[in-house]
Computed example of a mutant assay.
Amino acid sequence: MDLGPHSGFIIASYALCFLTVLALIAWVRIDKFVQDRALKQLAEQGISRNQPDSRKT
């Protein structure tokens, strides 16, 4: 396959897009881990997402 005179730019663009997608996937997975850990800590303190908020009337 001949990409022509701009083959370096085309390959670099695809590589950059691939790395960006990988970085976004990693970011989401890391954030999920952090949020799960925070929810677990709150649950251990007796705070639940399902408890009604006593401040609302």
Score class of each variant (00 low, 15 high):
Q41I: 05
K40N: 04
T57V: 14
N50F: 11
K40M: 08
N50A: 14
E44M: 09
P52M: 03
S48L: 07
R37F: 02
I30E: 05
Q41H: 14
F33T: 12
T57C: 12
V34D: 07
K56Q: 14
K56F: 06
K40R: 14
R55V: 05
T57F: 14
A26H: 05
K56D: 06
P52S: 02
I30T: 12
D31F: 04
K32A: 04
G46P: 01
Q41G: 04
T57H: 12
R49P: 00
V34K: 10
T57Q: 15
A38M: 07
S54A: 10
D36A: 05
D53M: 04
F33A: 10
L39S: 12
K32Y: 01
K56G: 03
K40D: 06
T57N: 12
Q35T: 08
F33S: 15
N50K: 10
F33V: 06
R55A: 09
V34N: 09
D31C: 04
K56V: 13
K32L: 13
K32V: 06
Q35F: 14
A43P: 03
K40P: 01
I47Y: 07
D53W: 01
S48C: 08
L42I: 04
I30C: 13
R55W: 08
P52F: 01
K56S: 09
V28T: 08
D36C: 02
R37Q: 12
R29E: 08
G46K: 00
R49D: 09
S54I: 11
Q41D: 13
Q41Y: 09
L42V: 00
S54Y: 11
K56H: 10
V28K: 10
I30P: 00
Q51L: 03
A26I: 09
W27M: 13
A38W: 06
W27K: 11
V34A: 08
D36N: 07
S48W: 07
L42A: 11
Q51F: 01
S48R: 10
V34C: 03
D36E: 12
A26P: 02
F33G: 10
Q51M: 11
D36F: 01
L42R: 09
Q51R: 09
R49A: 12
L39N: 14
A26E: 00
K40I: 05
E44I: 02
K40E: 12
D31W: 04
D31T: 10
Q41N: 15
Q51I: 05
A26T: 09
R49L: 11
Q51Y: 03
S48K: 06
Q51A: 14
R29S: 09
D36G: 02
E44Y: 02
R37S: 12
T57K: 08
Q41M: 15
G46S: 00
K40L: 11
R37I: 02
Q51T: 08
R49T: 11
W27E: 08
D53C: 10
S54P: 14
S48T: 13
L42Q: 07
V34M: 04
R49W: 02
Q45N: 08
I47T: 01
